[in-house]
C-alpha cells in the first residue's frame, strides 16, 4: 500500500516538477538537462506581451477579489439570517454558476458581451467584461465558504449588541464580521486564485487586446514549446499555490 501511494504521488507530481525544473534548463529543447540558467526568466520578463498579460491577470484577480467578497459575504449573511419566499430557489441559483460546465457559461457570456458590451475601451475598462465574467463564477464560492463559518455563529450576540444600543450596521461590522473574518480571508484568496487560474471562461470573453496569462500561455504553446513557456507557467504556479495554501489555512483556522 505504501509503495503504491508513493508511485501515485510520483506520477501526480513528476510532470509538474519537471516542468518547473526545465524552466531552469540551459537548452532550447526541453529534453536533456544542460545546466542551470535563469535566462528564460529574463527572456520572459523582457517579453512585453507576456508582461502585459500578467499585469492584466493580476488587475482582474484583484478587482474580482474585492467584488466577489462583497457580493459573496452579503449573499451568505442573507441566506443565514433571513427566511423568505423562494429561499431554496435563491440558494440553488447561487450554486448554479459553480455547477454548470465552464464552457457553457463561457459561450453564454461571449454572446452576451458581443451583443451589449462596448468595444475598444481604454485599458482598465477593456478588462471589464472579463472581470464581470470572473465575479459571476467566483462570488458563489466565497458565499459557500463564508456560510460554512456562519453555521457556527450565534445570532444572539448581534442582538445583544443592538439591545445595548448598536445600530444594525455597527452590530454587523463590530460583532458579526470579526467572527467570520478567517472565512472571508479564505474566500478572498480563493476568489483571487480562481480568477488568476481561469482559462476556459476567459478564453471566450477575452478580446485581442485584453488577454490574460493563461490565455497567453495557451497561444505560446500553440506557437512553440519553449523553456520560456515553462518559466511563465512556473511564476503562475508559485503564486496560485501560495494563495491556495494560505486559503486552506484560514478556512480550517480554529475560532480564536
Amino acid at each position: 500500500m505504501r509503495s503504491f501511494l508513493a508511485a501515485f504521488f510520483v506520477m501526480l507530481y513528476a510532470p509538474i516538477v519537471t516542468l518547473v525544473a526545465f524552466s531552469f534548463n540551459d537548452s532550447k529543447r526541453n529534453i536533456v538537462w544542460r545546466g542551470f540558467t535563469t535566462k528564460y526568466y529574463a527572456k520572459a520578463a523582457a517579453n512585453e506581451s507576456l508582461i502585459e498579460a500578467f499585469a492584466n491577470s493580476l488587475t482582474i484577480a484583484a478587482v474580482n477579489m474585492v467584488a466577489s467578497v462583497a457580493l459573496g459575504v452579503a449573499a451568505a449573511v442573507l441566506l443565514w439570517r433571513f427566511r423568505f419566499p423562494f429561499r431554496h430557489a435563491a440558494d440553488g441559483m447561487m450554486s448554479l454558476p459553480i455547477v454548470i460546465p465552464e464552457i457553457c457559461l463561457g459561450v453564454a457570456l461571449l454572446v452576451f458581451f458581443n451583443q451589449w458590451w462596448p468595444r475598444d475601451l481604454a485599458w482598465p475598462l477593456s478588462l471589464g467584461n472579463i472581470i464581470i465574467a470572473h465575479i459571476t463564477f467566483t462570488f458563489p464560492f466565497v458565499a459557500v465558504i463564508v456560510r460554512g463559518r456562519l453555521a457556527s455563529v450565534n445570532r444572539e450576540l448581534e442582538k445583544a449588541a443592538m439591545d445595548l444600543g448598536a445600530s444594525e450596521w455597527q452590530a454587523m461590522r463590530d460583532v458579526l464580521l470579526p467572527q467570520i473574518r478567517p472565512s472571508i480571508i479564505a474566500g478572498a484568496l480563493i476568489a483571487f486564485t480562481l480568477s488568476l487560474d481561469d482559462f476556459v471562461i476567459t478564453y471566450f470573453t477575452a478580446g485581442p487586446n485584453s488577454i490574460t496569462l493563461p490565455v497567453k500561455i495557451n497561444s505560446m504553446v500553440r506557437f512553440s514549446v519553449t523553456p520560456e513557456v515553462n518559466a511563465a507557467s512556473t511564476v503562475l504556479i508559485v503564486i496560485t499555490v501560495i494563495a491556495a495554501v494560505l486559503a486552506m489555512r484560514f478556512q480550517t483556522a480554529r475560532r480564536a
Partner: peptide, 18 residues
C-alpha cells in the same frame, strides 16, 4: 488537492514533455 490549484492548462502542457 494541491495540484488542483495549479492551472489546468499548465498541467496539460506539462504532459506534452511526458
Amino acid at each position: 488537492t494541491l495540484p488542483f490549484w495549479i492551472n489546468i492548462l499548465i498541467r496539460t502542457y506539462a504532459l506534452i514533455a511526458v
